[in-house]
Amino acid sequence: MSLAVVTLKKGEGRFLKSGGLWVYDNEIASIMGSFVNGDIVLVRDFDGYPMGRGFINTNSKITVRMLTRDERTEISPKFLKQRVRDAWEYRKKVVDTGSCRVIFGEADFLPGLVVDKFSDVLVVQSLALGIDRLKETILDALKEVLAEDGIRIRGVYERSDAKVRRQEGMELTKGFIGEEFPTLVQIEENGVKYEVDIRDGQKTGFFLDQKYNRLAIQKLCKGAKVLDCFTHTGSFALNAGIAGAQSVLGVDASETAVLQARRNASLNGLDGTVKFLCEDVFELLPELEEKGEKFDVVVLDPPAFTKSRSSVKNAIKGYREINLRAMRLVKDGGFLATCSCSHFMTYELFTQTIGQAAKNVHKRLRQVEYRTQAPDHPILWSADESYYLKFYIFQVCNDR
């Protein structure tokens, strides 16, 4: 059966031509041939030059997501298995693979698909119609590739419950793919044990992208009094505790997250050192300041304050507020670890916002290091959306 052909308008496809994987609806001149949404199509430039193959969905502004730049390449099980093998071989070289993100969508040339490995369990999130039709073939290939390294996967759980699926004309869904299994999974990272709730935890159950940023704060926390804001299930707080902090307070507005954090503290024998509080961080920071509290290390790991360009201005206010409050709580010469996980809060904007906060509270920042997401969440330079996590560590000094 011949494939439908998507032809670009003259002068369009700049993103695609610079290495990106997306074709937007307003870039398309014509679609010739029959297809149903989710099918593989050929993409050609206005003059017929072949651009490759991808899957189509006319419900989405991103109408085509590319799978290969070679028009002659069949999107077969063999092709998909090679994509999976490439992703796994890369992880083996760059991260601890005990628990890691095995497939990161566009950055692994499998657009719209995320697969996280938590010990011997896989959690999959499918965000595009075309990849949704291929996901079980990809998961079977992944289990085969892992088995070649002696890793037996005991279960797969789907967390395709992100609202972005609706933009693709898809229903939200979650549940087991294959046999059922216990959905509380124990993992270990940086010497810290966690119980991960893959069924009801945020996103796929645990934020693997901060793995080495959590490790980076350990050296600052020995003997320190630490405040971990937006602690979620306690990951930064527990890294501080395991590193020998004198005391750690983790804060989160979610009761469920705090209960999980307390269980994680018990799992690591840190109940006496690491405490958790269910409070709104924006309300708590001014209260701590009023009481005259000071900390050796303050960590800010908030959720994304913006998920679109239209709300960036409000996000800037939020980031500025929590950073200036946190700076006031850091002892002179203490440390602030602060981050943004929003793609739309760019490096330049985030840096500028922190600088403005420091100026407002008359603090001098000495940069210790700047980091991004762990390398199992690779940044593909031609896919801007793959670069989202910005993470700074500063020494905070009073104006002298």
Rank of each mutant, 00 (worst) to 15 (best):
L215N: 15
K135C: 04
G150K: 09
G130W: 01
I131K: 02
Q167P: 01
R166Y: 02
G175H: 05
V156F: 09
A147S: 15
L139M: 05
R214Y: 03
F206G: 07
D140A: 13
V156H: 06
Y212C: 08
E158P: 11
R214A: 06
G178R: 07
G205C: 12
G205E: 13
E171A: 14
T204G: 12
A141M: 03
F207K: 09
D132R: 01
L129H: 00
R165P: 14
K211N: 13
Q210G: 03
E171N: 15
K163H: 13
G150I: 06
E195H: 11
L184A: 12
Y194Q: 06
V156E: 07
V196K: 10
D140K: 10
I153F: 03
E168Q: 09
V164C: 12
S160D: 04
L208H: 10
Q202V: 12
R152Q: 13
L129W: 00
M170F: 07
V192W: 05
Q167F: 15
N213H: 10
Q186R: 14
Y212G: 07
D132N: 03
V196T: 03
L139H: 06
P182T: 07
L184W: 13
E180V: 02
K193R: 14
R152L: 15
I153A: 05
F181L: 11
I138R: 04
E188A: 11
E136G: 03
L146Y: 08
I198L: 15
R166T: 07
D132W: 00
G201D: 11
F206N: 03
T183N: 10
D132A: 01
K193F: 13
G169W: 09
N190A: 09
V145Q: 03
F181P: 02
L208Y: 04
T204H: 12
D209G: 11
A162N: 14
D149S: 11
D132E: 10
E136D: 14
G205K: 06
A162H: 14
V164D: 04
T173S: 14
R166N: 07
F207P: 12
D161N: 09
R165Y: 13
R214K: 13
E179R: 14
E179M: 10
A128D: 02
D197P: 11
N213Y: 13
V196I: 11
Y212F: 14
R154S: 08
L172A: 08
T137M: 10
Q210I: 09
G178T: 07
L215G: 12
S126D: 01
V164G: 06
G130T: 00
E144V: 05
E148P: 02
I198W: 00
R165H: 12
K203M: 01
G178K: 08
Q210C: 08
E180M: 06
E188D: 05
N213M: 13
L129I: 00
A147Y: 10
T137D: 05
D161Q: 07
R159T: 10
Q202Y: 15
K135P: 00
V145N: 03
L134S: 00
F176V: 05
G201P: 05
V196L: 05
G130L: 00
Q210R: 02
Q167E: 14
G155C: 12
I151E: 14
V156K: 05
E144H: 01
I198A: 12
D197Q: 08
D209P: 10
D197W: 09
G155W: 00
E136Y: 05
E195N: 13
